[in-house]
Every structure is written in C-alpha cells, then in structure tokens.
Amino acid sequence: MPEPSSKGALGVIASLGHAVNEIAQRLGFVARFFAAILLYSGQSFRRIHLTIREMYFSGFQSLLIMLVSSLFIGMVLGLQGFETLQRFGSAEALGIMVALSLTRELGPVVAALLFASRAGSSITAEIGLMKATEQLMAMDMMAVNPIARVVAPKFWGGVLSMPLLASLFSAVGVFGGYLVGVVVIGVDEGAFWSQMQSSVDFRLDIWNGIIKSFVFGIAVSLIAVFEGYDSIPTAEGVSASIRRTVVNSALTILALDFVLTSFMFRGL
C-alpha cells in the first residue's frame, strides 16, 4: 500500500485519525497507570509515614492559599449577594446564598483548582525531575517499585487532603460572608444564620460537596502523578508536563463538576 500523501483531504483525515489514536492510547495508558497505583497502594498505607509526608507537602502547605482565597471569595459573595438580594428586599437571604454557593459549587471547585495549581504542579515537577535524573530507574534497579514508593503515596496524599481542604474552604468562606454581610453591612445576624440553617441540608448540600471534592481529588492527583511519570525526561519535557497538569486538571474539574451537579441536584 502506497504511503498516503500528507496533502489534501486525505491528509486531513489521516491527521485526524492520528490524533484520535493518540488520545485513545493515552487514555488507555492513564487507565492502566491508575490500576497500577491501586494495585501497589498497599504499601502507602502499610508505611503510612510516606502518605503523611505527602499530605504535609500537598495538603498542609496549601492551607495558607486556601484560607486566604476562601476568605476573599466569601467576602465578595457577601458584597455581591447583598447588592443583588437587596433589590428584591430579601437581604436576609444572604446567608442562604453564601452558604449554598460555597458548599455546593465554589468550595469544592475553587479548592480543587487551587489545589491543582499549588500541589498538583509540584507533584508533577517532582516526579518529572526524578524521572529526568534517572532516580525512578535507579529505584527499579534496586528492586524498589517506583509506583509503590513514590507515585502511590503522592496520589493518596492528594486524595485524602482534598476533602479536608474543600470543607475548610467552605467554612472559612461562610465566615467571610458573615464578616462582610453581618459585621460590615449590618444584615440581621439571627436571620443570617437561621435562614442558612433552615435551608442548607447536611446530606444534600454539604455531603454532596464533600463527595465532589473527593472525586476532584482523585482526578487532580491522578493527572498530576501521571503527567509527571509520563513526562519526557528533559527540561522542556518537564515544563510541558507541568503545564499539561494545570490545564488538564482545570478542564477535568470543570467538566466533572457539571456531570456531578447534574446527577446530584437534578431532582430539585
């Protein structure tokens, strides 16, 4: 069979097919990589200090950016919500608005986006550099499985940190809304909390938000460790894989959020 020319309509179709093949192959690789992580994750729980170490780097060290940004997001929600609700004469519903938007959407989503750029990128950089400096290969030579020793603890550290960070994000955001709404603007404090409590449901709103953040944690951590492990072991290769981590994580979080929301809150 003659080689098809790279020009004309056939060339376009060929490059399209090539791209689809590439994507399918990559997805298959991700799935096998995920299966390998799950298979070798026994060690990251038996030697729990490996996972605790990763929780320190990806969870604890993200605390500051999470707390500051959630406080500001809560305060902005307080200002904007008051501005809008006041037009309809229902400024007391500010508490509901702030709490529902944080627990359902903004808490899990923004926390996951920040987590992807703060912790995900550094996970990718670390694994990518370990690959570039042939540390992963050296581990393999010493009969230490790099997936069990390096990748799985980083993955589980991220997965376990994410729901904690998201609930902190929502809680501090509600406090920020309280600061602006009640302390600065002067919405009635009793109405703010009681209306919030009467319409925020623990299982429906808060727990679904936690489930969301757990799913985002899996997605972001998987993308971060995969891109690091898959990176081309050069300086440009590592930088490209960090960029892919941030971009792919953001897109995956937003797409997953739409899917999860449509399943969770459709019956309302």
Partner: peptide
Amino acid sequence: LMDIWVGFFVVIGFSALLFLALRVGNAASA
C-alpha cells in the same frame, strides 16, 4: 514535626466539616 503538622491539618479539616454540619447546615435541628 511533620506528623504534628499533618495531624493539625486533619483536625482543622474535620472541625471545618463539623462547623458546616452544625452551624451552616441543619444536621442538629433536622
């Protein structure tokens, strides 16, 4: 030291969840 910080992180994470459940949500009054 790392254990202590991670323990601190887990504790404030869970207390945030508790705050959401009791103060923001209606887990207590439902």
